[in-house]
Design a protein around this nucleic acid. Structure first.
Lengths: 197, 197
DNA sequence: TCCATTTGTCAACAGCCGTTGACTTTCTAA
DNA sequence: TTAGAAAGTCAACGGCTGTTGACAAATGGA
């Protein structure tokens, strides 16, 4: 191990390219077939590499999944949030995350496996706690932030499930504008609207 | 095969009990660990039976899953629906389905596996098309029924995901009343409220 | 050029899976 | 009581899985 090049991003050595190829193939297959459904042999074949190399570069399938399941929602900075348009802001960002050209399949990876893989579930709860919750907390009474963020997440995860994983035809058919105009106000209400008990 | 007793519910023969035990164990394990996560050997052990018996009674794992994944939401009869309270009606029924003492784990079975098992996904789309959609169609313009039912389902599936499968703490902590009062109006709006484009 | 490190190939391992068939035990009807 | 069907047991199969170690090729600095 050459520890000197550890922090120097100068070296795009051959191994780095292979490593990236494996990770890209893994992200694609994990997103499409879930943790159990995507075998190491599948990933290797998709990256035109030997299965043993996958283990060499990432120590195990679990570690490969952990590396592949990194999610950064890049939600707006807390200071820049307008509480009057938080609902629309969230649903627009949601569409970028799931359909935007620059976004990877990070959320699909987590959501696809979260129902049958405890690590993925924990990671998803983590995304909620560290990325979604703070945004809601910035516009609502902190005492309510958890409940409000939970309701927001239930709507957004449900929409993602129906549109991208389950592919429920009427939900797939919705245009971006329809989604924004129908779901935006709901998120607005969950985040800062009237609430109960 | 004794075809004469086929339609006579008189005979609780030994085999019928075993068959029921296997099915119950299967429903429990499929609901908890998903299709891939629940092996036939697990089901057999849980039913205190030999794995070969599972195959004898149900011809294959796929067929066992198909028998276990039967869902009847028992939504209100179409004629009996009040369009002014459809939102509250739906969310109350939702809580009964998922937490009521008489309800089985049917929906959990489907939802747990729908992200990585195409049969479960298709079955879930079927429940939407044949059980949820007609109810919404009974209270809304039939031309909009699909879209409206889709939005309703996105909220309900998302809530189920967060509360029962992902177990997001703030969503688990919600009381029945909180859920009814927060989500009910949303479903009401999706089902019969103002809509766009 | 030469050698050491890196990168890649190949075959095999142990384990779990769904499924099968041969066998024994238990029950039931005549 | 006895023959035959039903119910249950057991060991094994082929296949796929993650993972490993021994070996070969390629690479790059001296």
């Amino acid at each position: 191990m050459n520890f000197m090049t550890e922090n120097q991003p100068k070296k795009p050595s051959k191994s780095d390219r292979t490593r990236a190829q494996i990770l890209e193939a893994a992200r694609l297959l994990f997103a499409e077939h879930g943790y159990d459904g995507a075998s190491i042999r599948d990933v290797a074949a998709h990256a035109s590499i030997d299965p043993a190399m996958v283990i060499r570069y990432f120590r195990s399938k679990d570690e490969l999944f952990a590396r592949a399941a990194v999610v950064d929602l890049q939600l707006p900075a807390l200071r820049a949030i307008d509480r009057n348009t938080i609902g629309e802001t969230l649903i627009r960002r949601f569409l970028e995350i799931w359909e935007g050209p620059a976004s990877g399949p990070g959320m699909a990876i987590l959501l696809r496996s979260a129902t049958s893989n405890e690590f993925a579930a924990e990671k998803l709860r983590d995304v909620f706690g560290h990325q979604v919750r703070p945004v809601v907390a910035a516009v609502a009474d902190p005492a309510d932030a958890g409940r409000r963020a939970g309701l927001v997440s239930s709507q957004l995860l449900g929409l993602a499930m129906c549109r991208y994983l389950l592919r429920l035809p009427p939900v797939v058919a919705l245009s971006h504008d329809e989604i924004i105009q129908n779901v935006g106000p709901i998120l607005q209400r969950y985040a800062v609207g009237e609430n109960v008990s």
